[in-house]
Amino acid sequence: MAGLAKYMAKRAIDRVMVLFVALVLQFALLRVLPYYVLGIDPSFFFMNPNLTNEQRELIKKAFGLDEPLHAQFVKYVLALFTGNLGYSFYTRRPVAAELMERLPNTVILLGTSTVLTILFGLAIGLMLAMKRGTKIDTAFISASVLLNSFPTFYLGLLLLLVFGFYLRLFPLAGSVSRPPPSDPVLYVADFLWHMTLPLLTLIIVGVGGYALLIRSLLITQLGEDYIVTARAKGLDEREIIVKHVLRNVLPPVITIVALALPGIVSGAVITETIFSWYGVGRWLFEASTQFDYPVVQGVLFISILLTVMSLYIADLLIALADPRVRLR
């Protein structure tokens, strides 16, 4: 157990450093570069020409923009430790408060899609591994070429065109009807109805990759000696996979899922924009075009934080599942 604690402590330091470097990078890309390369002073974005100079200085001061950039960075990072993500240039409201309004929608959409994608991926991967070499398997592998070359946004657009505009089966925008039904059961049904298309987009895009990955992991494992032994013992193929193989396949799958998280956030931006889903992704896009730096920085920080945290949890899970890694 001590080994685990030591290992996890080491990983924690690693992850915190990653987070810090990501913060520096993000700050450099979003604040330093535009300022020095293009001379864009963010304080001009929310100034009204009616203001006097003192008024401008006051506003600059309120947002901490009167200080040099490195001091701003230090302040920014220190504020993050107290949970303060800053104030939106645009609405002047705390970024954290604005974020909380949008987070539930995104979490519901992404959570559902991630869970479903992994489940479907696992199921299909298992099926393919068991039927390896058959026509279904080869067909799926050939189809994966197509999947690798299909743009996410285009899938969303096609679904919208076919099911939204042509067949009119699903709504074109939003996450609930306006006004939503007052009955709670109907409300949930209405919400799900609105979520179908974005969910479908995210699942279709993600599921192929998982399936192929799990298939190849399983096949590698199936070639190992212990499986041959198990088979020799006369165990059923299904039993072998469930009892022996899945356990060994778990660690890489956990890592891949954790690593895929930033990708999910990216996917959310486009999907939420296409389906006008009121969530964090769309907010980030809007805030970017409005030059709302604190919001953009806040969202990026939160998504990096989430990624780092989930990677850390993955570390823990893997360490628990496979004690060997602690020695590395």
Binding site: G39, I40, F44, F45, M47, T289, Q290, F291
Partner: peptide, 14 residues
């Protein structure tokens, strides 16, 4: 030029 950036340039007369 991005709208907000343009507005900023207008306000700063650059």
């Amino acid at each position: 030029i991005e709208f907000q950036a343009l507005v900023a340039q207008i306000y700063s007369k650059t």
